[in-house]
Design a binder for these strands. Structure first.
Lengths: 142, 142
DNA sequence: CTGGCCATTGATAATGATTCTCATTATTTA
DNA sequence: TAAATAATGAGAATCATTATCAATGGCCAG
């Protein structure tokens, strides 16, 4: 994402643009998917060593609240962040090497909606993760 | 679960039966689903104030490794435990009151298997959670 | 432009869940 | 029963995350 667009995106959401926020958002957006806070922090620090850990967390929170970032949790004790994308996707996680692949099955989504409705829930989010061994790890085990 | 059965279950798995483990396992099994470690600890303490927190965690780990207990994570920062049941189920979580309901949709399970196979994964576990507002919380909001 | 106010920041302390350490105690084994 | 081994309790340590608070910065009124 180009710098100008980040500026615009922040403005549209009414977020006061500061140097830190610009750097953090831009860095995250350039890092792809499933980025941990400490991982993001270490890259941000390379660009500006003065930025603190708290600011990274605060900014992630802010971007999340404003719908620019999604937070994920694969149950390994730390949250992951990624730019929110219009296209929804679920995850396939390799429990050996940690590789994460994405997938999307509209039929599953529809079935989920149906279950929620049956149970009287107003579903606002969901989470589907498949855990297993990827092809590469299976082959290397032999 | 009766005391005698717990004794037997531990023996079958080759777990050294100690007073602490008997109390912890029995308490957990009597508490139902989605029990947090500290919640379990506080009940265990009522039965035997001498038991330490570390032992609760160690025992949960042990029971999990031996397939007697399942660990869950709903992304709220703490792990939940429950007796492992032959029947699989997924979860519907109310993000307002925390209520957890269970459900099972075999079709979804099959579709998951299919996705994993397509991607070359050997799936060993999965996790599906729907988040939303339960009926009661929706009504109270008005 | 310029002082001042309020939002933001950085450093660090605090928190909460979980794990580790190690001396003590219980269990098993010979 | 005695020695060897495993388990325990108390509290320290860890790890990710959040809160605190004084210092700083951006931005509007004059």
């Amino acid at each position: 994402m180009k710098t100008a667009n980040i500026e615009k995106t922040l403005h549209e959401k009414g977020i006061t643009p500061t140097m830190q926020r610009r750097i953090i958002a831009q860095t995250l957006f350039s890092m792809g998917k499933h980025v941990g806070a400490s991982e993001l922090y270490s890259i941000v620090r390379q660009k500006n060593p003065g930025i603190g850990f708290a600011t990274v967390y605060r900014t992630l929170q802010l971007l999340k609240e404003n719908g620019l970032v999604e937070q994920r949790d694969f149950g390994d004790g730390k949250k992951r962040y990624e730019r929110r994308d219009e296209t929804h996707h679920d995850h396939l996680v390799c429990i050996n090497c940690g590789k994460v692949e994405e997938f999307d099955v509209p039929v599953i989504e529809r079935l989920q909606e149906e279950v929620a409705r049956e149970k009287g829930f107003n579903m606002v989010d969901h989470r589907l993760e498949l855990y297993g061994y990827c092809k590469k790890c299976r082959e290397e085990k032999e």
